[in-house]
């Protein structure tokens, strides 16, 4: 088990290397490929050849790509120093560099935005997990009833609705029409927990709706499949009450895959709920990514990509490890 985790962790590191290298390549080779010069974006209005050279030097864009990548990776593990002489700046571990645009450390910019994305992702995650699974189980147990059909129709609509549409609809109905949630904006949890929750209600629901629908459908299908298995029949034959059969034997097998998917979805979301943040104008990691991409602010893009990739692979790892406990059939070699 321990060896398995270590091996997987090494895999994570290798993966992060590849993800970062690919992002690096896209942003260094991409503009070259289409004939643009990244440094020009940060050269100001009064950019001439000389200042362009200076800006390039400041951003480190004058060095060959492998040097830049090497320095970047080194920064993450041992930190690095930017500039020289009187204006030199130390960038401590884990150094993701400074934003080309704002000169702020990328690490701080991301950690600043994390609470927003975490608030959004974890709240929405809880809502969709609970509601999706509950509806899915009920539907499965009352298969063919009106409830089942209604729930599955809503769920089908749910998986077919993009969050940038439900978000706008929710805002126009609940914020503009009924004024239940006026002026939805992110407000910090530590400032005022009530305000925090109130402002997050609509984003949570919109984001959760999409996933809850998927989960409901999945739970229902899994439950139905499980309840048809031989061991359930055996349990019933033993004379166990139906409730016990469902609870002890049905849930466990049916919900294990849901846990897996939940881990992966949440991991993906923590890397930035880009669309939700864009629609509601929340200053989270996803919005940071979109803004940085528009401005070709490479260090920030790299930072966010690595960060998002990190959550995805970590979620994978955690799910795999948890699996060993949940499902005794899984063996690690």
């Amino acid at each position: 088990m321990g060896r398995f985790v270590i091996r997987r962790l090494l895999g994570v590191v290798v993966l992060m290397f590849i993800v970062s290298a690919a992002t690096f390549a896209v942003f260094f080779l991409g503009p070259k490929f289409v004939g643009a010069d990244v440094a020009r974006n940060f050269c100001g209005r009064v950019c001439n050849e000389q200042s362009l050279v200076e800006v390039k030097a400041k951003l480190g864009l004058d060095k060959p790509i492998y040097d830049q990548y090497g320095a970047y990776v080194k920064g993450i593990f041992v930190g690095r120093t930017f500039g020289s002489g009187e204006t030199a700046r130390d960038c401590p571990v884990p150094c993701l560099g400074y934003s080309f645009k704002t000169d702020l450390p990328v690490w701080n910019q991301m950690t600043d935005r994390l609470p927003v994305t975490f608030s959004l992702a974890i709240g929405a995650g809880l809502i969709w997990l609970v509601s999706g699974v509950a509806v899915g189980i009920l539907s499965a147990l009352r298969r063919g009833t009106l409830f089942d059909r209604a729930a599955m129709s809503v769920a089908l609509a749910g998986v077919s609705l993009p969050v940038y549409f439900t978000g706008l609809v929710a805002l126009s109905v609940f914020s503009y029409k009924f004024k239940w949630f006026v002026n939805v904006h992110y407000s910090g949890f530590t400032d005022n927990p009530a305000e925090w929750a109130k402002n997050l209600v609509l984003p949570w629901i919109c984001l959760a709706f999409l996933y809850a629908a998927t989960y409901a459908r999945l739970t229902r299908a899994n439950m139905l499949e499980t309840m048809g298995e031989d061991y359930i029949r055996t349990a019933r034959a033993k004379g166990l009450p139906e409730k016990v059969v469902i609870r002890k034997h049905g849930f466990r097998a049916a919900l294990t895959p849901i846990v897996t998917i939940f881990g992966l979805d949440l991991g993906g979301l923590l890397g930035g709920a880009i669309l939700t943040e864009s629609v509601f104008g929340f200053p989270g990691v996803g919005k940071l990514a979109v803004d940085a991409i528009g401005q070709q602010d490479l260090p920030v893009i790299l930072g966010v990509t690595l960060f998002a990739g990190f959550f995805i692979v970590m979620a994978n790892l955690i799910v795999d490890v948890l699996y060993a406990y949940v499902d005794p059939r899984v063996r690690y070699s």
Partner: peptide, 19 residues
């Protein structure tokens, strides 16, 4: 194109306008 590049490198660079 993004505003950050528009004036500096796209229309503010005569050679690029021509190219």
């Amino acid at each position: 194109v993004d505003p950050s590049t528009y004036y500096s490198g796209v229309i503010g660079l005569p050679s690029n306008v021509k190219k």
